[in-house]
Structures are given as structure tokens and as C-alpha cells.
Nucleic acid binder design. Sequence first.
RNA 1: GCCCUGGUGGUGUAGAGGAUAUCACGGGGGACUUCGGAUCCCCAAACCCGGGUUCAAAUCCCGGCCAGGGCCCCA
Length: 566
Amino acid sequence: MDIKSNIINALKEVISKEICKEIDIKLDKTPNLELGDYSVNICFRLAKELKKNPKIIAEELVDKLKAMNIEGVKEIKAVNGYINFYIDYNKFAKNLMEEIDKKGNNYGRGDKKSIKIILEHTSANPNGPLHIGHLRNAIIGDCLKRILEFYGYDVETHYYVNDMGRQMALVVYGIELFGLDKEKKKDHAIAETYVKINKYLEEHPEEEEKILELMRKYEDALENNEDNEITKKFEFAVNYALDGIKETLKNLNIKHDTFVWESSYVRNGMVKKVIEKLMETGKVIKEETYMLDLSDFGIEKKMVLARANGTSLYSTRDIAYHLDKLSKCDIGIDVLGADHKLTAEMVKAALKLLGSKVPEVIFYEFISLPEGSMSTRRGRFISTDELLEEAIKRAKEECNKRGVEENIAYDIGLGAVRYNIARISPEKPMVFRWEEALDFEKVGCPFIQYAHARCCSILKEAENKGVKDEAVFNYELTSEEKELIKMLDEFKDIIKESAESRRVHILANYLLELAKAFNRFYANCPILMTKVDDDVKKSRLKLVKSTKTVLETGLELLGINCPGRM
RNA sequence: GCCCUGGUGGUGUAGAGGAUAUCACGGGGGACUUCGGAUCCCCAAACCCGGGUUCAAAUCCCGGCCAGGGCCCCA
């Protein structure tokens, strides 16, 4: 039984006995250690019902609570109507350090939940490289996958490949007209051709017909489940772009389990079936084409299910994909840009109409450039490759400046890129500025990695000196030690909160705080110095070891490596 | 016009009913003869505006204002 539950149980017992009430109790964190470690504000709530001053209620309750000798609690105080609990750090520290020691990098891991999640993320159109907008999707998605897995879910990641859109037909036609620059990285070569064909079409609008024809032919072939010249051209183009994208993802330390092509749902007839089933609901209106009435779901806009020429539409294929995906898992999660909000709502509504589960959708706001939003079509974007390359280059310079081996530059550079995005809550719009992206002081990641490296070197030094770590903790702990211990304990809650709310920035911000707490501890509490008492030395060393473990685990969950020296 | 997000020191960001609003950068000042200075400490500096709900509001509600996004037989 942990201390928090002990406190809550004791409170419930006292309140039901003294006041004859069952109430929900939530423990709060105190603003600082002087006010204890945990607190409750129930007295304010009780004050109204009992018509009594909250201060007095608190004092009375404290007397009763003290008499109960709650295990792990050293002191209880009533302050201005709050009840503050002070925990017994010596005991607490000992237990916690032993737990971390025993579990190692599994400390904080959730129990296996036997729940299958399919998490779709990145899913950028294969008409060019990942730009820094897609990067936000990819990083949020990948961190989330790691966190959910660690929390105990069985997670499969999907990359949904949009191979049927107009933009792919443009690429295919573009390759016919202009070919591909074989010198360039494949996804960049595709983008170059894509920009050219867009410009060409602006100048030759009469050729628009050819694009429509390509789309028509591709879809016809798919509907008949045929392979012919056209499908080969599309597949070539898509795979060509995907090769490049996969290379970038690999550099980002991101791996998808499955790539699902939207065309597969036309091939297997599911898209047709979706339309048929939707017709059966009686909510389909036939105008020039089929429109779905979703007003029952509060959506006034009608959802168009197919083009007048009979070809399918992105959102209809998306319904088929979700129907299939959601039948294969317990929870489906999509990471999508905020521009998909309306369509996502429509897809959800359509799924409900069909009696299906609906996906959870995580929206993130766009990353824009100071001069405006990005556009692959206009060639106005910053690619992830570019950013990563620059970040690693900058990391190398920093290493050289400090006389550290360059081979850790990748870890530092990638860490900065990933962390810089992971730390921001997704609903916040971001503006990309090179100076900020490459300012390693501003990005908290090197700070965290440095704290880890520092742990490593202290542990190594201890080994040289023959000092062994042990959770003795038989002395009065300093406030820095207490803060650090509390942070290490909090890791479990952070994982839970981060996983359950599907918010990765919570973990990212926590790690920075942990590193901060560690540095404060390091600055104020001598560890291996000769004047330090042996038991203190051993205990503090254990604290270092535990911090290293948690930093390692946490950074790994953000897909960030931590070098042993830097 | 309608819908959805966001608005917190100079800048970027956390906090989503509770006590003195987090952290970083930038500015100013300081610390260190032993464990690694990508360090630590201190100072100045912020909740868009107006109402409301509450013992308690940055946080919830209503109304403004500002910014971004959406409202395609695009994806």
C-alpha cells in the first residue's frame, strides 16, 4: 500500500466516522515542501455544509488523523483550512530506491492490459518529403506509441498511404513529362516533379482532363482488381516517394508496423460496400451524386460520397479504412492535423451510422513559417531532412567547442529536434524559426541528456573509488534530496497521465523538471567527496543511479538516446 | 457569415477550480581549491478585455477583441 492511499483511506475513515459523510478525496501537491508533501482542501467543502469555519474543521480533523498513526506519514498540520501531510522520507526513500533498483528500466511500466490499439500517424501524402509540419504528427505519434506500449497496451502503428488522390495522378503525369532527378533523394525528386507539374498545369489548364483520366483509369483497374500499366505507374511513384520518406523516418528513430494503401479498399470492394450500406440507412440523398445527411449528428454540411463520374473520394475510402481498422483493434487512435477536423467528424458520424466504433482523434495545430503556411505544391516548405541535417551539424559544432567526440552529435541533434516538438501541447500553433530550432540553449533536451551523462560519470567515478550504492537513508535528508525523491516517485503518475490523456508533452516537461531537480541536488549535496559520511555517500549514489534509470527510460519513451558522455 | 483551436513576463512555454503562477531564452547581479560549468543561486518582468458562477477563477460560463485553421464532387 502506498502512502497516498494510506492518507486517503485514513481521511475517509475519519470523515465517515466524525461527520457521517462519504466523499471523494483527491490529494493535491503542495506548492512547496514547507507546506508538506500532500494536501487536501476538503475542509472548504465541508465548511458550507457544517456551517463551520474551515480552519476549525481542519484542526479537528488533524487531531483525529494524528491519533491514527498513518503509515509513512510523519507529521500532519492544519494550515488555513488545508490539511498538510508530511511524509517520512527516510522510509519512503528507501522503499522507492529499492523499487527502482529492482525494476530498472521497467520502473514505471504499466501492467499488461490485453488491449490492442492501432495508432495511425504521419500518413503524409507520397508527393514529397516529410516537411516540418508532418514532423509534428510523426513525433507526437511515435512518442505516443512508445508511451502507450510502456503503459501496457499492445500497440500497432499504421501509416495510411494516400495513393489515390489527385496529387498522385499529378505526380504520375509529372514523371511522364519531366522524369525524375535521379541524383536527388527519392522523396525530394518526387516533390520537384510535383512542383513542376503544378506549374505546368497552371499554364496549360486544358490538360486537366488528362489528370482526371488518369484517376479514372487507376480506379477502374483497382475496381476490377487488375494490374496494368497504370497501376504500375502509380505504384512506382508512390513507392519511390515512400522509399525516401521511410529513410527520413528511420533517421528520426521512427518505425511504422504497417503501411496501408487506401487503394486496397477499392481493390477489395469495401469502398463500394460502404456506400451500399450507407444507402441502407436511408440517410443518403441522391443529387448529381450521393450525399450523406449527417444533421442527426449536428453536422449541417452534407458529406459527398463519390464524384459524379463515379470515382471514389478520400473520405469515403477513409470510412472503409476505419471500418476495417477498428474491427481489428479495441481502440483506434488517429493523429491528424487540425485541418482535418470537419472531415474527421464526418467520418466518425458515418461510422456511427454503420454501427461501428469510432476512432479517438488527436489533433495538432500547424507548424507555420514566419512568412506563412507551408505548401508542398508551391515548393514552400522546410523538409525534415534539412532540419535534421542542420541540427546535427550544429550539435557537432557544440561538441567540438567542448572537446567532446562528435559521434554523439546525432543523439544530441535528433534529441533537440524531437524534444522541441514533443514538449509543446498539440493544440498550440507553432511558428518555425531556424534560430530557435537550432538554439541548443533554448531546447531543453541537451540539458536533460547532460544530467544523464553526469549521472553516468558519477557512477563511474564511484566504481573507481570502490563506493557501492545502497539505500541507507538513515540521516536527515536535505530539501534537494527530498525534491528529487518526490520527482522520481512521480514518474509512475506521469506515465499514467500521459498515456491515458494521450498527451506526450506531459512526459517531456516532466523530464526537464527531473533533470532540474537532479542538478540542484548535485550542486547542493556532495556525493563522493571525502568529507561525506559513508552512509550518506552510498545513499546519494543510489539516488544518482535511480535518476539515471528514470532519465533513460523517459528519454527512450520520447525516442531520444542518451549518450554516456557529452 | 458560420464552426473549431489558441491568446500567460520582452520571447517561447507549463499550469485546466485551491495556498507565493512553472520552466527556459534574453536582461541585471552573484557562487565554486575535491563528485563534469551544456552547472547552481538571486533580482526585474506576465494570466487579451468586460461581465458572471464560487469560500476560492489563469483555469468554469456568457459577451467582446486578436491570431490560426476549417466550411471543395481536394487530400
